[in-house]
Nucleic acid binder design. Structure first.
Lengths: 271, 271
DNA sequence: GAATCTATGTCGTAG
DNA sequence: CTACGACGTAGATTC
């Protein structure tokens, strides 16, 4: 692990440092006053200002201002970084193909340069996804409704793959569409497409049910589902259980507060 | 403008520096070996590794590894930053309400701390958006089809607002849905929802046309549109013209190459 | 590569 | 606040 930092380097010093950092595969940050030009799927220009530019060894490029989670300009992974000095000014260019896109960062002044070696520990363990919800249901299909039997996941149709395909207690085909959060109209339409595709596949005379499973649903979407003869089942992706009624108050255990107290002593400090 | 950097600071030194930086409203970067725990809409844990942590004065928090454009963990704007030292270890916590979410970054080792004052120049000028496409069409409605007359944009319906509402040469109502890029099935469904809503509003006997305008369309979506009696018009959001046939080769002007040559001299350098 | 869908999507805007 | 849709969405998966 190493971290090199240059304070107020010249444009040319930064170019040298960039060359070495590219070579080492470092994660690079450049803080300075710059303009940004992007051209590709769309195009944009950004006037002069102080920004934090991040260059990752996988080709990702991020230009961050002091606001927002999303970079003001960027380049996705796989782009090629290229730095140059023209008329004494540093330019960092990121280019990619398919689609052809170019991002130019032109520096007026460089306040800080850093090259950081970032390695290891990249795998995230995430819970509460749509996949979790599916596992809950496959483990206990009656969560959808008593007598429901899943037959297939990702079953193909002309409208694309459906989340869960199965039959109800009366052997009526059922399409289940899962969403990890409150659903809007697009989810109802998506389910509708699958139901229609199955209708065509199995014959117009065959009944096909469509069930949308999500923690909750908006009013308009609820109406849309009713119109289309689709059903809704409320399930939480974390627990696989029907979500708490919003009227019920939160029950908070006091164990966490005790932990805080235990670890606090005069050597500890807060900001 | 200022930029303070600490090289291999202690956890406690970093805490002090954080306090001052929060106070000043700086953009903060902390590079170090850390673990990350997130709990909120979903929940996740991330084992030890070297990462770049960015704290913005608007409350945004980003944890970046050496890969991907998207941070491995984050907190959106509006969250509150809080730093503390427990048992000699720095913890940075970001919390927000609605929804309740907590992000904890626990440091084993801090390789570098920086506080940067980032101000001004935040306005981006972006071209080639859906709004551009709309302007092209309103300026020359015949781009959709000869005789088309736009009557309203963002016209409300029970299915939500439609991009352009108008009439064709025979006074038949037309819903136009705009997309800035190649469209998939969801766009067809969206248009279908609007057409159905208009049908109900104007009476089932009234003919309503739906036209999807985008640079191109996938095959399955094309079939979906045909089934539903919807139409497609190919237009490029940049030019407002029918997109080039993919068979036609790119015509590249050589002016850029000349520019490069002009500005290149022995003082200039590339990486 | 193209197509399709999920996402702790994020972001803007209207109600 | 919520709802709804756009986004240079990014990212994963499948074909």
């Amino acid at each position: 692990m190493h971290a090199t930092t240059l304070h107020r380097p010249t444009h040319r010093e930064t170019l040298w440092a960039l060359e070495e950092a590219f070579e080492r595969g470092d994660l690079i940050t450049v803080f300075g006053r710059c303009t940004v030009d992007y051209d590709g799927r769309a195009s944009s220009t950004l006037g002069p200002g102080n920004r934090l530019v991040i260059l990752k060894p996988d080709g990702s490029t991020l230009v961050h201002t002091d606001e927002k989670r999303t970079p003001v300009n960027w380049q996705p992974p796989g782009c090629e970084h290229h730095a140059s000095v023209r008329d004494g000014r540093l330019r960092i260019r990121g280019t990619r193909q398919t689609p052809t896109e170019t991002l130019d960062v032109d520096f007026e002044q460089i306040h800080q340069f850093s090259a950081l070696s970032v390695t290891g520990g990249r795998d995230l363990d995430l819970q509460g996804s749509e996949e979790d919800l599916r596992q809950h249901i496959l483990g206990d299909p009656s969560l959808v409704e008593p007598g429901f039997t899943p037959l297939e996941t990702e079953r193909e149709s002309t409208a694309g793959p459906m989340d869960i395909y199965g039959k109800d207690r009366d052997d009526v085909p059922v399409v289940v569409e899962l969403k990890r959060r409150r659903v809007g109209p697009s989810a109802a339409s998506q389910l509708q497409r699958y139901v229609e595709a199955l209708h065509r596949e199995l014959g117009d005379g065959v009944e096909v049910r469509g069930i949308l499973v999500a923690p909750s649903v908006t009013d308009r979407t609820s109406a849309l589902l009713a119109e289309q003869g689709l059903e809704f089942v409320a399930l939480d992706p974390d627990t696989g259980q029907p979500p708490e009624d919003e009227a019920s108050g939160d029950v908070v255990s006091d164990s966490e507060a005790e932990d805080e107290k235990e670890t606090a002593d005069e050597d500890d400090s807060d900001v």
